[in-house]
Design a protein around this nucleic acid. Structure first.
Lengths: 177, 177
DNA sequence: GATTCGATCGGAGGGATAGTTA
DNA sequence: TCTAACTATCCCTCCGATCGAA
């Protein structure tokens, strides 16, 4: 058991979320957090700072025993999402956070005519007739969105392959899109 | 400041969500929780057990210094919701939880022909031509849904008035729908 | 011919607005 | 008849399967 300090209002908020008598703080928080990855998809799309090649060089990849995508896949947060586009966005965000530099590099994958990723939505719009660009949450990138599910899976597969993830993880990620 | 105990794994999970050096547990949790109310709206609609008059009698209202709707209104979770129907559902859920018996009683409000609330979706469907009943998450009730925003506000106002909330709170709740 | 890619268009959900009733 | 309250049609947006093009 660990102990943490909380502001009073937050403490009362959490306490108010008790559903069963005798529930522990961990129980309540687990329930509340279980699904929280969800919301950022609907929040006002916050764009991260545009990346320059220089800054990309200096950004260290996340180093930890479990990568962000692995955590995301394991968390079940993706299963909470009904629409494949939401699962897609969540995956892209996690991939970006795991290694912004590699992600940026991998971002160069494209279709026959359409550009799939860009920091400039206009570049995406210009590359096809109805690409429907959308921002990838918490990221400086935009993606095209007028695609069927298998293409979304495909984009994730190409992206992850380019970033150097192994087969198994790629397959798992694609399976959840 | 309050202190709570957490399971180790939850503690480490929360710590791993640090975005800024020196962030406090409250900062991190606020970020994670801010939006978590959201997810249940998209989850498979889980119906609570149907209520019988007998069980309603025995359910005690939530007793605490801050009611659930107050906590909800203060939490900013509603502002995360883009669609008014989602804010509406969140409010209804909170009202139910604050006092199931009074909520059940208040549930008798209705329109000229349409029945607004029922534990049986068919009753709602039968009361109008396109009522679009939907379950209120974590609740045994269904609501009609084919309404404009002002009617939703109206329904919340009537419901809360019947439950005995004061003017100011009602106004605030309606304002956020 | 087979496969990959693009983007049209059908379907669903939300809710403003037009229509109805008291 | 005029208005206020209520209903539900119907438009708009978003998603993504399907079909056409390369």
């Amino acid at each position: 058991m660990k102990t943490i300090e909380l502001d009073d209002d937050l403490y009362f908020y959490i306490a108010s979320q008790t559903r069963h008598i005798g529930e522990s703080a961990s129980d309540i928080l687990r329930r509340l957090l279980e699904q929280s990855a969800h919301a950022k998809l609907n929040a006002a799309p916050r764009q991260a700072e545009p990346l320059t090649p220089a800054t990309v060089q200096t950004m260290a990849p996340v180093t930890q025993d479990k990568s962000g995508i692995q955590a995301l896949l394991a968390s079940g947060a993706l299963q909470q999402e009904e629409k494949s586009i939401n699962r897609f966005m969540l995956l892209l965000g996690a991939l970006y956070r795991d290694d912004p530099a590699k992600f940026t590099q991998a971002t160069e994958i494209k279709g026959r005519k359409r550009v799939y990723f860009s920091q400039d939505p206009e570049a995406l719009r210009a590359s096809g007739s109805t690409t429907k660009p959308k921002p990838v949450p918490d990221t400086p990138f935009w993606v095209i969105t007028n695609t069927n599910t298998s293409r979304k899976q495909n984009m994730v597969a190409q992206l992850m392959a380019s970033m150097g993830y192994d087969e198994a993880l790629i397959a798992e990620a694609c399976g959840t899109v």
